[in-house]
Each structure stands twice: as structure tokens, then as C-alpha cells.
Design a binder for these strands. Structure first.
Lengths: 115, 115
DNA sequence: TTGAGCTATGTCGTATTGACAGGTACCTGC
DNA sequence: GCAGGTACCTGTCAATACGACATAGCTCAA
């Protein structure tokens, strides 16, 4: 039960972060949902399920950060590929900068002994 | 209106992170709520308001990561100081490690061109 | 003495999000 | 056929950050 807080914390920490992670993998080239799940799973502490990735992809598409197109597959149903738009690429840059600033901010707080 | 998404994203990204930030400033020594707000405000992109900090402090106290004690002030109402407990200090270490792993994870996704 | 303004703590309602269970459906090989 | 892997999507839930608001002590100038 004492670990309940820690688990909850990691869950909260993912909010917003998964969007950044997904945009970043898409920065490497078009991917379909199922593959994104696997790709993020490689990076420890970013494991997600299908039920998590599709709502996020929908949101990103609504914002026109990504666009999708269908492609047949030789093994299984057709795949819906997602690709970064120009708009998405520029937004990703902004987000990555913000992310780095956050990281530095936390790092500074840790160093500031006393005042 | 297009910027609505970005603002919302930054809000979501803070979830969980503020707890880490607050624990980290407390790592430097006891502080009271109002001062924590100012201290975090120094670090850009970590600005918070009172309505945010007090609920978090309550949560941290419930988990016994911090303990509080009252102290008179020469200017204004008495202050409620918060101090890291041993438990909080050990948890903070764990959380900082998790945070660094996340940062590396995102960094790797960004580098992985293609596959 | 009055009251403006800063200090300080706290609560409530709202909006948004990630997790997960569950559902649909396609395709291949046996 | 039909089992099993592939692929996508929906609804519900709990948790959080934040603005708005409430309360109150202290200081200082008019």
C-alpha cells in the first residue's frame, strides 16, 4: 500500500509526456499505431497499450500535427500509418525545447543547496 | 485558438512534476508554502500559484514524505514550515532516478532515425 | 482609526488526461 | 472452419493543476 503513491505518481508524470514521445518517434518516419506501441515499449518506462495510443493519435490528428493514410499489409488487416505534418514538426521543436527547460529547471532546484 | 493545445499540453506535463520539484526544493531545507511558490517561480516554466501548492503539500504530508511545524513570523501571519522526512528523502531519490530515465528515454526516441 | 496592500493558508469546481477493459474486425495457416 | 496474431477504437474511471474565492494577520500611511 505504501507504494501506491509512487505508482500513481509515475502515471501522472506520463501525462503530456506520451504525446511528446509519440511525436518524437514519428519524427523518424511514418508508423502505424500497433508499431508505435512496440517502439515505445523498447524505451523502458514508456510502455503503453493500444488503448492508450489511439486516443492520443486521434488528438494529434485533430490538431493536424499528424496525418494518416491506409496501407495494405501482408500479414493482418490494413494499417493506418501516421506521419508528421509540417505543422507537427514545428510544434515538436517547440515542445522539445520546453521539455529541456523543464529538465534543467528541476536540475537546478536539486543543486540549490540552501539559498 | 491553435495555441490552446500547447498551453494544455504544458499543463498536463506538469502533472506529477510539481511534486518532484517541491520535494527537491525541500531537499535544500525547510520552507513554507508561500516561499515555495516564489522559489519555484525563479525557475522558468515551473511557476505555480497557491491554489496549486497547498493541495500538493497536503498530499505529501499524508504520505509522510514531509512534516510541518508552525513558526511565528515578524511580518505577517505565522508560517507553516514543511520539512523532508527520512522517508521523503529516500522516496525523492527514487523519483529523481525515474525522472532521469524518462529524460533519457525521450532523448533516445529523438535520436533513433528510422530503425 | 481606518483601510489599502502584502503576507499566508486553505477550499472548491472545472477541464483534461492516461489506463484499462472490452469490443470489432481482418488475415494466415492448419 | 477456426485458432491466434494483428490492428483499431470506445467508454468509463481516477487523478491532477489551476483559477476563483474565502479567511485572516500584520504594517504603514493618511
Amino acid at each position: 500500500m505504501p507504494e501506491l503513491f509512487y505508482e500513481n505518481w509515475t502515471t501522472q508524470l506520463r501525462k503530456g509526456l506520451l504525446e511528446l514521445a509519440i511525436l518524437n518517434v514519428l519524427g523518424a518516419g511514418p508508423l502505424y499505431g500497433y508499431e508505435i506501441v512496440r517502439r515505445l515499449g523498447d524505451a523502458d518506462s514508456l510502455v503503453i497499450t493500444e488503448g492508450t495510443v489511439y486516443p492520443i493519435l486521434s488528438r494529434l490528428r485533430n490538431e493536424q500535427y499528424v496525418e494518416s493514410y491506409i496501407e495494405e499489409s501482408t500479414s493482418g488487416p490494413p494499417r493506418k500509418y501516421y506521419r508528421l505534418t509540417a505543422r507537427g514538426r514545428s510544434e515538436l521543436r517547440k515542445m522539445n525545447e520546453h521539455w529541456e527547460r523543464l529538465h534543467e529547471g528541476i536540475g537546478q532546484l536539486r543543486k540549490e543547496r540552501g539559498r
